[in-house]
Amino acid sequence: MIEDIRALARELLEKGTVECVIGYEVGPTGRVRPAFVYEPADVERLIFDARCYHNLVTYLTRRNKPRKKGEEVPTTAVLVKPCDARSLQVLLNENQVQRDKVYIIGVACPGMQNADGTPELRCTRCDQRVPLIYDVLCGEPPEVPAVTDTYDDVERIEALPLEERLAYWLGELDRCIRCYACRQACPTCFCSVCEAERDDSLWVGIADRIPEKAFFHIIRAFHQAGRCAECNACEAVCPMGIPLSLINRKVAKDVAQMMAGYRAGESEEPTPLVTMLTGEEAIDEIH
């Protein structure tokens, strides 16, 4: 598979189809990291295996802006796994990325692994091994048993008494240091100035206290409603190990339940939170 990826990357760069190929490489200390390849000679750096967990779609919104006024937006090729492809679809739906300025190299996903070789939990719940959108697909899709995401992790929290839920979340969110890595790693968090970081502190002050931190995480999760592709980039980068996926997955679960099974990035429909009622919703009582 990696030979296919390298050959394709070389061809794209040699022909000038794209300015840059975003993939993965191994850093000098053996850590896998995003790689930006501009020269055909450098394609040998590219790798792909079960450690390539970063969602590279994050970099596309940045590259889809002209560097200087009037300059043309360069075309970028990007390696996407199925989850990354869903987040890319969200960006395409929201006109954050121009389809003709991105060359999508889909990879048949083996499922990502933790450092100890065990599969990432999110990957054991995922039944997609081929991205929903791509220009070229690399690799043979592995067989996967059909799995249904039962949201058992979310249900475990839901089953706690109200007070315990509050205590749990206050404890988890109190560890936050407001480094905003979750937001920065998230492909669908693309506002140029986050409302949690506004100079006028309109919504959230600068202090590192529970109210500010909880506010930030709740609004971020809510802004991802119907948009979060569950790529887990936020949780993977959190230096404090906050289980952010539990918030995002709760919202995703509720959106699917209430909005006729809607799942982010699986269609060209934007998030149902910005569209009209269709009559198919199963919305809860409103009070």
Binding site: L162, R165, A167, L273, I283
Partner: peptide, 22 residues
């Protein structure tokens, strides 16, 4: 259709509030 958004947003927030312990 302004209230179409409201009727989706507020129930979703009610669920998230419950989840977070409010």
């Amino acid at each position: 259709s302004g209230n179409h958004r409201t009727v989706k947003r507020i129930p979703l927030l009610r669920r998230l509030m419950t989840y977070m312990g409010i």
